[in-house]
Structures are given as structure tokens and as C-alpha cells.
């Protein structure tokens, strides 16, 4: 006996329609879910597993989600929570590593200087620049990347990030500040100017 046997028996057309609807739903949101997981985890293979799990869960609640304007929010929340679970399970807790960072990475370090636009010989195309930024994000350590992504991509306030990551508010601010500096440093080393980023 399968699940469908217990409730109303669905005709193949109805089941087919449901699958088609779910496929459409998945096409609409898969990039968003994958992006959230990939940027938070910093690992594409892991992000794919997480995104799969998100849609498996969404399938179980598809009747509630399919016409719900909050579906995107639900998917993002599940993707974020599952990524935290993965980060916690397969790597050491980012808090732990964060606390082991050497003191010379302190927040009063000078801000990074980007090269001037005219010092960059080759024009970096948009797509290439986007890829550089994604690669730079992946290069950040978990304890910097996670709060940075939550703040800038997920638009989560500092307080909420602190609560979600179970760390103090000053620590979140410090980690995000260091992450910005590190990101700027990586991009500058790759020859991307501030003007190019602003363009």
C-alpha cells in the first residue's frame, strides 16, 4: 500500500498535473534555493544536496506552498536552516574556529584600498566579475561568510543573525566587518577596482 491508497485515490491525470505543477514550482525557485545554500555553505556539492532536501520537504507540503505568497520565504528559511545543520555537522562549529582566530585580524585593521580603475589593464566583464565575487565569497572562512551572507543577501539584521548563530551582537558585527575587509582584499588582489564594483 502506498500513501495515495489511504486517502482519495488520484487518477494518473491528477498525479501528472501535480508533478507538472511541482516541476513548475521547482523551476521558479531552484536558483534562489541553490544560491542561498551555495553562498552560505561555500560548497557547491553540499549546496546541491541541501537544495534537493529543501524541495523534497517542499513536496511534502506542496498543497500549502503552491499558491502561497510566502513560499519563497519558507524555502529560504528551510535552506538556511539545513545549511546551518550541514555546517555544524560536517565541519567544526564556525563559532569555535572564529574564537581561534589570531588577534592580528582585529577589527581596527585599516580598510582595504582598491586599485584605481585606470590601473586595471583588462576590462573585467560583468559575468566574470560576478564569478570573481562568488569565488571570493567561497574563499572566506565559514565564521565570516555566514554572517556576511545573512546580512547582505538575506537582509537579516545584526540582532537576528546573532540570535540565529547564538553569538553575541558585537561578535557578529566584528565578523561581518572582517568579512567585508577580507572580501575587498580578495577582489582587490584580483584587480577589480571599486569603480568596477560600483558600475
Amino acid at each position: 500500500m502506498h500513501l495515495s491508497d489511504d486517502d482519495t485515490v488520484q487518477s494518473p491525470t491528477t498525479e501528472g498535473d501535480r508533478n507538472a505543477e511541482f516541476t513548475k514550482f521547482m523551476r521558479k525557485y531552484q536558483d534562489m534555493v541553490y544560491s542561498t545554500a551555495a553562498r552560505l555553505s561555500g560548497n557547491d556539492a553540499q549546496a546541491e544536496d541541501i537544495a534537493q532536501e529543501v524541495f523534497l520537504r517542499a513536496h511534502g507540503r506542496f498543497e500549502e506552498l503552491k499558491d502561497n505568497p510566502r513560499a519563497a520565504g519558507w524555502l529560504k528559511t528551510v535552506a538556511t536552516n539545513l545549511t546551518f545543520t550541514h555546517l555544524t555537522r560536517y565541519r567544526k562549529r564556525w563559532v569555535f574556529f572564529s574564537q581561534l582566530q589570531p588577534k592580528d585580524e582585529d577589527s581596527d585593521a585599516p580598510e582595504h584600498e582598491f586599485p584605481a580603475a585606470d590601473s586595471v589593464t583588462d576590462e573585467v566583464q560583468d559575468e566574470e566579475r560576478h564569478e570573481f565575487v562568488e569565488a571570493a565569497l567561497r574563499a572566506l572562512p565559514d565564521h565570516q561568510r555566514v554572517p556576511l551572507v545573512l546580512f547582505h543577501f538575506e537582509e537579516m539584521p545584526y540582532e537576528e543573525i546573532a540570535s540565529k548563530l547564538r553569538v553575541s551582537l558585537p561578535k557578529v558585527k566584528t565578523d561581518i566587518h572582517r568579512a567585508r575587509q577580507a572580501l575587498a582584499g580578495i577582489l582587490a588582489r584580483r584587480g577589480i577596482s571599486a569603480t568596477q564594483l560600483e558600475s
Binding site: 536558483d31 556576511l148 543577501f153 572580501l183
Partner: peptide, 17 residues
């Protein structure tokens, strides 16, 4: 720095699945 990084990240398109 904050506004530059914020603007940069917000302009990032979604990653393709």
C-alpha cells in the same frame, strides 16, 4: 566599505542550479 560591499553583493545575480 560597507556600502561598496553591500552594493556589490546585491548586484550579484542568483546562482544557477
Amino acid at each position: 566599505l560597507e556600502s561598496l560591499i553591500d552594493a556589490t553583493l546585491r548586484k550579484q545575480p542568483l546562482r544557477r542550479a
